[in-house]
Amino acid sequence: METLNFDFPASRPVSRRVHVGVVGSGDLEILLEPLEDERALVVVRTSADGFGEVWRNVLDRFFSRNDVAASIEINDQGATPGTVSLRLAQAVEEARS
């Protein structure tokens, strides 16, 4: 298990907190909460060690396309980059609905 921290610039706040997903095989859970700062703070706990670069790329791509100022906690059980992006999009959509 590995813990990774990321910090992205952001300006658009979310209105409410959202929980999606489950820490099941190939899946992950996301806890997304409003944040006062203009940043996206991401903490990832993942079962798969040594994928820091992959996470950085996936999150980079997501936050370059999505302006989300929020605190985001991810508990991951080996989700693919595709699943990660999908779950993040789902969380952001719900937080803005």
Binding site: M1, V23, S47, N75
Partner: peptide, 17 residues
């Protein structure tokens, strides 16, 4: 509320919230 298991991450298992 994040009342997760305190026993999993010391054993290398990702907890759930």
């Amino acid at each position: 509320e994040r009342i997760e298991s305190p026993h999993l991450s010391p054993q290398g298992v990702v907890p759930q919230s």
